[in-house]
Design a protein around this nucleic acid. Sequence first.
DNA 1: GTAATAACCTACTAAAATAGTCAGGTAAAT
DNA 2: ATTTACCTGACTATTTTAGTAGGTTATTAC
Lengths: 162, 162
Amino acid sequence: MRLTTKGRYAVTAMLDLALHSDQGPVSLSDISSRQGISLSYLEQLFSKLRKKSLVSSVRGPGGGYRLSRSNNDIFVAQIVDAVNESVDATGCKGRSDCQSGNTCLTHHLWCDLSDQIHDFLNQISLDQLVRRNDVRQVAERQEFESRQRCLENDKISAAIVD
Amino acid sequence: MRLTTKGRYAVTAMLDLALHSDQGPVSLSDISSRQGISLSYLEQLFSKLRKKSLVSSVRGPGGGYRLSRSNNDIFVAQIVDAVNESVDATGCKGRSDCQSGNTCLTHHLWCDLSDQIHDFLNQISLDQLVRRNDVRQVAERQEFESRQRCLENDKISAAIVD
DNA sequence: GTAATAACCTACTAAAATAGTCAGGTAAAT
DNA sequence: ATTTACCTGACTATTTTAGTAGGTTATTAC
């Protein structure tokens, strides 16, 4: 079973995309500064997300990424699957050869768990997340911080001109 | 989120213990040969299981480990918790400081997932596993293989005597 | 009492995965 | 033409996993 920052970052970034989808394509550097995820790492993740056609890209100035489907048609499980190989809890990736070719004593238990996790994550859409109160609150704080950073940058620019 | 061989091995070993609990203390070398888990690795795991008082030990010849509680009072979640720190899906171990001190956008989602997994595993007792058909079948195959290994060893011993 | 057995303990290590970085591309808009 | 931003691949430090090695202590059978 793998669920690490890789999968978490991917979902966070996709949610950021969903939250700003009304403002045209969103650049990775915007996501990077809002969510505190390294730009190069985001590039790796979005390469995979694009291959699974969860996002589409727009190049050039003003470009960025947008969701390739509607908010309510993208589920968390699909995002995690796209960047991690799977949310599989078995050691044998479901091949039932966990104990030197044979099924191990607990194989079916981990299969059941995998199903459980997958069902749970497959039931949560980006749309649902966008509407959650806790998500809206964090998003608002991030907007505020983002504006603060803009002001700071303007100050620095002005100082350089002087 | 961590669920790797460590947790899987621990549950498998505990299930093996439960399956042979009628035959007095079970030695780690028995579990090792039946389940194909390295002896030294089992020792590390059982040290943790003992500290969480899931098993008790009997030293000396004929010794081994036994479950310190009844079959139906030991749950999979407890075993995984004992060897992994937790089945936590958040990156911040529930501290809500995932994004440089603040809550990240998806924190609550991972909390929900953690609860989901924990509830699922906390509901499955060793007793339930012992009674499952798929478990009984694998256990039987392992008994057979174990007897085969005994015969092989006897042959080798006889050959050495010659 | 001594040999065998099996728990117990500590430290070390190879391999893999994670979480990045870096250096260069290429495509599209202004 | 130049800037913006996507895109790619190779490289790397750190951490974790999974396992080894080598010993000590307690108990039992002879």
